[in-house]
Computed example of a mutant assay.
Amino acid sequence: MSKVFKRIYSYNFLLPAAVIYTLIFIVPTAMSFFFSMTRWTLSDWDFIGFKNFVTFFQESSLSIGFKNTFIYAVVTCGLKVVLGLLLGVFLTSKIKSKSYLRSVVFFPTLVSTIAVGIAFSMMMHPTTGLLNQTLALVGIEGPDWLGNTKLALISVALVDVWKGVGFATVIYIAGILSIPEEYYEALQIDGGNAFNKFWNIIVPLSRSATNAVIILAFIGGLRTFDLIWAMTKGGPGFATDVIASIIYKQYQGGFYGLATAGNVILFVFVSALAFPLNRYLNRKEVDL
């Protein structure tokens, strides 16, 4: 009897979290799946089955949106991992004003994404932007960063990296500081140099931090919307259209059921990429 009582007693502690999780995740998710199969407005709905999904997949720019979404996620994720690791190593080394520099690196993460998008849109203006005016001082003619179909997506991705690398750096700082000093002492006894310290100790033993950064940055890249919308609204043409911006345009047009179906597709797309990646990375993780 006592074992049954203890089990029930322990489950009672999970009940509040389970209720909250059900209300803010399970219920909205189930409602999204249902309304994705309807033609709905704020006051009425009609069940139409899978017609919304068929129509969404017939969207002319959808293939471009999938491609742009994947490229954007890979570029931003890769740069955040590399730059976050390098900054993490630098900001855990024996330098002065480490606390101040860490604050400077992390600061862009705290700024509104829309504000960052508007500010960089002005800075990247082809004629009056600060970036091209600076390049003109050294005799370089700057390109149309956001108006060139070949540069626009990469330009927005670099702004995303500037804004988000601080968060990746904080994760790496925590991972590097958790490495026991015994490893560094053993390397010093063996006559290892700074590169050996980085490559043989920091890189493998901060894999947990790397896994976290990869998963968070990759999912964030797949779900990106606000920065792209603030800077290009998916243009020029469809050059920076991602799945989320295509969905938003459907909402703007009043096709709520179609846009909801798009959200379901995006959820499945992100899950289909993120869950296997997370499982693969966790399998490769190095334990201290």
Rank of each mutant, 00 (worst) to 15 (best):
V165C: 07
A212F: 12
N196H: 13
V159M: 08
F198K: 07
D144T: 08
W199M: 14
Y172H: 01
V213A: 10
A209N: 04
N148Y: 11
P180Y: 05
A186E: 08
A186T: 08
F225L: 11
N132I: 04
Q133D: 04
I173F: 02
F198T: 12
W145C: 01
G234W: 13
I173A: 02
I202V: 15
G164A: 12
G139Q: 10
A186Y: 00
A194Q: 11
G220A: 02
R223P: 10
V138G: 00
G147D: 06
E185Q: 14
S155M: 13
T169Y: 06
W199N: 15
L146T: 12
L216F: 15
N211E: 04
V156H: 06
I202F: 10
N211Y: 00
A157M: 07
A209P: 07
A174C: 04
A186G: 00
L227T: 05
N211S: 14
I140K: 12
G235H: 10
Y184N: 12
I219K: 11
A174L: 04
T232R: 11
K233S: 15
I154G: 01
T232P: 11
I173H: 01
N132Q: 03
K150V: 02
I228D: 04
A136P: 05
G220S: 15
T232G: 06
A217P: 06
Q133V: 03
M231G: 06
L187S: 13
L135F: 11
V156P: 06
S208H: 07
V170C: 03
I171C: 10
L135I: 00
G142W: 09
T134P: 01
A136Q: 13
A209E: 07
A168P: 03
A230G: 12
I179D: 06
V138H: 03
N132W: 01
W199Q: 15
I202C: 06
Q188M: 11
I140R: 03
G147I: 07
E182T: 14
E141N: 14
A217R: 13
L177W: 00
S155G: 13
I173T: 05
T232V: 12
A168H: 08
I215F: 12
G166Y: 06
I154E: 00
V159F: 06
Y172S: 02
Y184T: 08
A174S: 14
D226C: 09
L216Y: 15
G139R: 07
G235A: 12
P180F: 02
